[in-house]
Design a protein around this nucleic acid. Structure first.
Lengths: 251, 251
DNA sequence: GAGATCATATAATCCATGTTATAAAATCAC
DNA sequence: GTGATTTTATAACATGGATTATATGATCTC
């Protein structure tokens, strides 16, 4: 028996950056979606695959990653409810990376043709979806900086700050406290480190009383300090994108 | 006196992935552009700036980068003629990174409002532009992998392969031979290494007779070997995107 | 609730890459 | 062309994070 889930969280997200009207909302709600439950660790998209459906994450967490020729893994993003997991595939055709469930997830599958149609018929919705992919892109850029130029303690701090704020923005956490459904090995694969070293860094962040950890729950105790150590600045998350007015005619 | 330049290279690029009609082309050619010459090393966009114009690179090379809190630089992409440098700014508003000239460049500046209008009036062009940003995004993902999980010799090899193929695809180089207008320091900032170590790696690649260097010119002598060492696979460059048919109704 | 499996913890050792320094070569500015 | 500046080259030494190993604690399976 499936838990009832809706596209509500997606709508919330799209409308946070673009003003939509009733017809736009109706068009989204009438997308021919299939709901699915996906078990933890199962693959939703595999690199090299010709993609026929895009996936919207309704509940749970997922991540995108690639495996290098010598078998190492690099995670390139973490996803939370309300996010598209692979909107780029609606226009690129062949997946260039894997998408995997971090926890058990409820997802909606939407045929790529329906998404292309939606973006042509409702240009405002098309732009909202485009913006989602642009924000993804901004996050990838920041991750290039994170793994390219920050030391281990900064990398982990930065990641913890990013996840906290994205969860809070989505209404899924508050007070810099959240459940992080990731193993230390997965944190290592996000930050280009080894699991052993992630363990050392987490221990150090706890010792400094910047965070409290208890199993998978994280509380950022000293937000300002952690943000500083992680060289974290929210700009790249584009929470505003000029606010929902950004698609009005230029002033 | 300005060299005469046209939007032709942009059109070529957009049409490589999406079929455009005469009206689409006309709309692009009637964009209200301003041509500018930009000196080497000058900034075209600065992080934090509210962006009013998007920039199309017509001749020359440019790059995007961020500076970390402690003054280190990470380059996140290299751009060549025909590419948009900051199309994402047309919808995101505030720049989250810098765009700087690598050589003297001829560019076209297009008001962001004109680009938004274009994408609403000519949805096909809008999708073509969207695809450009999606390919950028795919390249950022690969760069996360490159700096996160590959060793120094792989990182440099991967970068040399990527630039070779992108230049060839754009008709700007052939036979895996090209002028790379970057210092070793800039290569270091692309790959998350130090300039000293980049020098060591380049020396090693030459010693192994995989590449020939002479000043800034690069010739990849053993393409297959370099590709293998760099763990390089063209998939992420999406040269096809399903070919220009990818926007036909789903089969 | 007993094993099996997976995740965390932690120590000892190693090494790929960073750091610092110096000099030569190339390029730039006038 | 000349001096100033930038870039490349290279050596000696340092280190942050990797590697390997082992133990313990959690969590899953039936």
């Amino acid at each position: 028996m499936t838990i009832p889930v809706t596209l509500q969280p997606v709508l919330r997200r799209l409308e946070s950056r673009v003003r939509l009207d009733e017809d736009d909302r109706a068009a989204i709600h009438s997308l021919p979606i299939q709901n699915r439950t996906v078990e933890s660790a199962s693959y939703m998209v595999r690199e090299g695959e010709l993609v026929e459906y895009c996936i919207i994450l309704l509940t749970g967490f997922a991540y995108r990653h690639k495996i290098t020729g010598d078998g190492q893994r690099q995670i390139m993003s973490i996803h939370m409810p309300g996010e598209f997991l692979d909107l780029q595939n609606s226009l690129l055709g062949v997946a260039d990376h894997n998408v995997q469930a971090l926890t058990r997830c409820e997802v909606a599958r939407v045929p790529v043709a329906a998404l292309r149609g939606l973006s042509e018929e409702r240009p405002r919705v098309g732009q909202a979806m485009w913006i989602e992919t642009l924000v993804d892109s901004a996050i990838f850029r920041e991750w290039v900086v994170n793994v390219g130029r920050r030391n281990s303690i900064s990398r982990i701090s930065h990641l913890l700050c990013e996840i906290a704020l994205r969860l809070e923005e989505a209404g899924l956490a508050e007070n810099h406290r959240y459940e992080l459904p990731m193993t230390q090995e997965q944190l290592a694969d996000c930050t280009g480190l080894t699991p052993v070293h992630v363990n050392r860094v987490l221990k150090e962040l706890s010792r400094l009383r910047l965070i409290n950890r208890n199993k998978r729950s994280v509380e950022i105790v000293e937000w300002d300090r952690l943000q500083q150590i992680g060289d974290f600045n929210t700009r790249y998350l584009h929470f505003e994108a000029g606010g929902p007015v950004n698609l009005q005619p230029a002033r």
